[in-house]
Structures are given as C-alpha cells and as structure tokens.
Design a binder for these strands. Structure first.
Lengths: 254, 254
DNA sequence: ATAATGCATTGACGTCGATCAAGATGGAGG
DNA sequence: CCTCCATCTTGATCGACGTCAATGCATTAT
C-alpha cells in the first residue's frame, strides 16, 4: 500500500474568506463580518496538490471538508476488482468530503486532476461554529441538500439517457460552472481526460471519442484536446432537456 | 393539474418519538430525554396516505422533512416528455425530503406505494432546535451525509453494473433494511411493482421479469408476486460485490 | 532526433438489454 | 362466478454501446 502522503498542517496559513472571489459559491449565505472572521480562523490552506496527488484516500479517517480554490479534483470509488468509478468532478468554489460525515471515514478517494489548491475546513471546528452561527448551519445543510439533489439528477441522467444526451448534459454543466465563476460559458478547458469523462458518465472511452467526433460533425461543438467550444448551445440543450422545452432548465450540477 | 390534496395539520397529533421502535433508525444519535421531548413537540403525524397518494409533489414549497413510520414511499423525478425516474424507495425509519432544503422546493414527488403513515417534521422548527441541541445538528448532518454516500453507491451500481448485478445489489439492500428493523433478512414482501423496481435500476420491465426467472432457475431466490425469499445470499453477494470477496461488504443503502 | 509512454482515435464485431408484440396471470368489482 | 384491466411474462428482433485490436498523435525521456 502506497504511503499516504498526508501533509499535516505543515504549510497551512490562515485563510481570508472575506477576500476570496469564490466565497459566494462556497458558502452562499449571508454571514456578517464577525461570523466570517470566526470562519476564517478555522479555515486553513494546504500546500497545493500536484496532478495525481491525493487529497484523501478511501477509508482515510474523516477530519475536514475541503473547498477547491484553484484546479480540479475527481472523487472516485474503487470496486473490488480494482476498477474505479468517478463519482464527481470538483471545480473551484465547490465543496467535497461531505459524504464522509456519516461514517467518519472517507468513502471515496479525492485526487487532483491538475495543480490544485484547496481550503481545509476541520469538521469538528465547523460543526461547533455552526451551533453558534445559525446562518452557517443553514448554509451547511443547504450545501448538503444540493449535493443530494445533484446526485439524483446525475443518477437519472446515467440511468435513463442515451450516450449523446449524457454528453450534452455534462458539457452544459461545465458551461454553467465556468460561467458562474465569470469565465466563458462557451469556451473552456476541461480538466479531465476523455477517459475520465466517459468513466464518469458510465460509457466506454471509445464511445466518448466517437461522440466528440459526431458532435463536431454536427456543428454542436469544436474540440481540440481538452479545449472545448460550444457552438450551438440551443441544440445541446435540446439534447439534454428534451426538444425545445424552455421550462425546467435546471442544469445538472449547476 | 390535479388538485393538490394537501392535508394541513388537520389530524396531526403530538408524536411520541421516545416510544417509537424506529427512533434509532430515524435519528441515530444520543439525545437525552429532555432533547427528545423538545423534538416530540415539533414532530407531527399526518393522516395515513393511501396507495398512490402524494406526500408532496415536485415544485411544492418545502416546509418539512418526513420520516416513514409504516408503509413505503417512492420518490420520482419527471422528465420533460413525461416519463418518470424513481430516485428512491423509502421504508419505515427512513427520512425523505432532504433534497429540497437547498432550493426551498421539492425537486421530486413522493408517492405512497401502499398505505403509509409518516411523521412530519417542520424544517424551520427542526433547524431552530438544531442550533440548541448540538447532538441534533450532528445527527442531521450525518443523515444527509449518508444520503449522499448512498447516492454515490447507487450511481456506481447503475453506471457500471450489469442488470443481474444490479438486481442482486438491490435485493441485498432490501434484505438489510428489513433486517435492521428486526424482520427477516431472507423472506420479505417488496412494496413496489416489478416495473417500479426496474425503473429504479434503469432497466426495462421485461428485463426485470427475465432476471427474476433466471434468479429462480439458478436457485438464488424464490419469488411469488411481491413475496421474495433469498435462497442463496452468498451467491447474491458474489454477484453484488464481486467474486467471493468477504471484505468491503458495504451494502448499498444499508 | 529518436524512442518510449500514455492517451485518443478508428474500425470490426459481438452482446446485452431495449423494444415490439402477443399471451398469461391475477386482483378488483360487479 | 365471471369480466375487465393492469401487471407480469415470454418470445423475437434490433440497435446502441462495449470490447478487442490496430493505429495515430503528443509529450517526455534518452
């Protein structure tokens, strides 16, 4: 078993949530300045992870939840025969580790897809703080609720949608997630490989490759490597949400 | 649009959590007698739902979460073209409605599979109480964490497993859930139809039917209608968790 | 520059499970 | 008891997607 490269508080520094551009994404609630200050006291930053490094591994004891500051992280569960299933991609402003609260151990591994920095939020401290700050408790519950909701949507997508619908859904999801950070909704760089994307969607890498070609032939997107440009968002939406229906445009993972 | 048959506080009575046999399942934490009493003050029981009645519908405003006392409930999301995807089955002692906290509206509908009674827990009250009782806050967070974890497992099952593996997984899941209520782990009555089960697993009803036949021919189960008897749990586990591996027997939805 | 490595692409082929269609079963109601 | 309707079953067929295998392409190491 590989040595767990746990970096214990080594290069952690006090974090300035109040100045973080991602704060509204991270904790979408109204906390007054004093509350935020208390929060800053417990949030720590760790040494950035290099591509491939683990933030935590499955079965690791649960100590903290994490917010991505920059980069990207994938969470995976491992089956007995050693093949992995990717359960989520986590972009800046998004929280991970919540699935470990119940058992006290991380049920999945979290691995950096590229150079990634995260804020570490020790859970005991957070939980204590939440009893003092009602707004924080509320925020926590909402974040977790949203996670459950997103999982249900993803489940539906994987269970009931065809391969091209799934791809459309996930492309629009990334589009939204980049967009709300103020980046382009139509041109972005995917942090994961085709193989990882296909794994996430429950497809074979070859199928993903063929899909990308078809989408380009149909003028829906252009792609060169990980650089993606959405050329016909309307058509993608039609694929993802059914034909031309403008209602019910809740976006997967948005 | 059908009239929403909301039963507002009509026949609600104060609930005696302290005497409920499902309490440990519902809220698996240590609350002292005084805390439980406070909880009882806010928990209400509603008139039992008849088969097919809705507890809530998608888009309904979120007011409360619910604990199943008896019976069974399915939660479903509706796609644009009107077909439904079942996102979960909820048995006695299990909580539903958590996915609505974030948006303030229920993202899915909840419908009784048979005559079902539930405890209603108004969320505002619960949230307030949680700020007063740390153990309750902790419990809430754990329940939600577990929900996220289960969703990830289910996602993995649907995305990566073959039809027979999925059936084995879900049968063992029900076995556990009946077992922990003190009922038989090997003989039980499924509350849902074959069609609903197949929908949940992302399969066609015909496939489900064939699977049941094959499982019976192979001596894994016997089934007559909704009555199921697991004849060879070991073999089912092999199917569900990989060949003969005794480790890692985390059970889906257990 | 060349080799080596890892990921992406492309094609050929097979299979699992969906779909279509037709009975069988069984429960609810008269 | 019989009828009626929904659900379940069974068979035949088809297609989407996985698998296998070969090749291309890019990046890094030699």
């Amino acid at each position: 078993m590989a040595a767990k490269q746990r970096v214990v508080n080594l290069s952690t520094i006090r974090q300035a949530c109040s100045e973080c551009s991602l704060f509204q994404l991270c904790l979408p609630v109204t906390l007054d300045a004093e509350d935020v200050e208390q929060l800053e006291d417990i949030v720590q930053r760790r040494r950035p992870l290099r591509r491939g490094e683990y933030l935590y591994r499955a079965e690791d004891p649960f100590r903290a939840i994490y917010a991505v500051r920059a980069g990207a992280i994938k969470t995976t569960v491992l089956s007995i025969n050693g093949e992995e299933q990717i359960t989520g991609f986590h972009l800046p402003g998004e929280i991970l580790g919540l699935d470990a609260i119940n058992s006290g151990r991380h049920p999945c591994s979290a691995q950096a897809l590229e150079t990634t920095s995260v804020c570490e939020i020790p859970f005991d401290n957070l939980e204590y703080l939440a009893t003092k700050i009602p707004g924080l408790q509320q925020s926590l519950l909402r974040i977790m609720s949203k996670e459950i909701f997103k999982d249900h949507e993803l489940l539906y997508a994987v269970a009931k949608r065809s391969a091209d619908e799934r791809l459309a859904i996930v492309l629009l999801s990334f589009s939204n997630r980049f967009g709300r950070r103020g980046l382009s909704r139509t041109r972005f760089r995917l942090p994961m490989s085709r193989a990882e994307l296909s794994n996430y969607l429950g497809l074979a890498p070859e199928t993903m490759s063929r899909l990308f070609r078809r989408f380009q032939e149909q003028g829906l997107i252009t792609a060169s490597g990980k650089e993606i440009a959405l050329q016909d968002i309307g058509a993608l939406r039609d694929l993802a949400y059914g034909y031309g229906c403008e209602a019910n445009q809740r976006h997967l993972r948005s």
